[in-house]
Design a protein around this nucleic acid. Sequence first.
DNA 1: TATATCATGTAATCGGTTACATGATTAA
DNA 2: TTAATCATGTAACCGATTACATGATATA
Lengths: 211, 211
Amino acid sequence: MERPEAYPITYGVLGLLAFMGPLSGYDLKHLFDSMLAPMWGAAHSQIYNELRRMRELDWVEMEREEQESRPDRKVYHITQKGQKALTAWQSQPPGVYQIRDELLLKVMFGAFASPDALAKNLRAGLVEHEQRLHQYRMNSLLIPAHRTTQGEAYQGRSHFQPYTEENADESDLFLNLIAHFAVALEQTYIKWLQEAIAIIEHQPTGEQEQS
Amino acid sequence: MERPEAYPITYGVLGLLAFMGPLSGYDLKHLFDSMLAPMWGAAHSQIYNELRRMRELDWVEMEREEQESRPDRKVYHITQKGQKALTAWQSQPPGVYQIRDELLLKVMFGAFASPDALAKNLRAGLVEHEQRLHQYRMNSLLIPAHRTTQGEAYQGRSHFQPYTEENADESDLFLNLIAHFAVALEQTYIKWLQEAIAIIEHQPTGEQEQS
DNA sequence: TATATCATGTAATCGGTTACATGATTAA
DNA sequence: TTAATCATGTAACCGATTACATGATATA
């Protein structure tokens, strides 16, 4: 059995290049942290790896933008081969669905924590997820601003379209769907955290007062 | 900087041993797939690795249960050192929170999919998450049945208690909290999928009829 | 007859994280 | 003066996945 030539993270980078136009590794890292935060994370080192991988596959091409007093920007754009790969991926059934949540793990084994420690962790989680919710709401307001008009070089494929004004409505549809999901998820999480905190803090499991 | 001696997955195994009593690697794999499914997954090979790691740390001990015509069961139990480590972990701020969801990634870049392909993937996701919801509801009904009475050998620590009849109420509290979270999450996801499917399928993005 | 369950492990690989490395500009 | 931003990469490590390996019993 052969290993696949690409992984979800690969298509994350490829999709951003298709969707947002020519981008540098640095740009891509920022887009991962904002747009793809609800579904896939990536260190910058990994993004550079994926870019190298995709160049070897001829899914992307690179052009050097020279700059003074800064490292040159290496700007990547998707090729027709890359566009085909992206569409082909869309026809495969989705694989990975996984959650890794150390906070939930600690709640699960909350019987082995002091109530104080558990409550503290829950409250920190609440703050974190409230920030996340806030971010996602900000992002979804910014959606119409994310727009590239430089998508001239590589259009023409049947289903294939970069994000431009002509198809802004259609593209916004997916962006809005994702934003809606992210907000709904955080709301659910936050509501649960609040309930959990209320329960844990009103548990008389030790009666240890502390000024 | 030193690498940590243990990771969330390690505490997942340790917590199950503390909570459910002496268990084999095989038992642990099944408990991961049922109880810990909403927060952390593990292949069986990894569980065996963690057991070896924890034996080296003296967090667990092993006893061989001989069997005829089957491989011997190797049954692990937590030590006092392991109990201390578990409680100490509960006082650390939680680290990992990450979601990896290839379906969401495909929706995000849905502009590069045929509407048929996208709808198919969404419908498959709906089925999957409905099954998940059903499982979690089943599990939470089974909670009072998950009970070990063999936790005699290693009690006595201050906060430390295995899951027995005496503290069933307190332990059930955490189990119920997690079950409640898992159900709420799946409900949110399912509701979103239904909305997304409705939107995608009523999109006239090609008008390609197909009998 | 074939699949599922019980039961434990090793080997190979690689995705993903953390740390290392560099260095100018700009804002607090 | 310190920190953040811009900008790109390499090196080391390891957690996690997939495949390999074995073999009896029970169920469909």
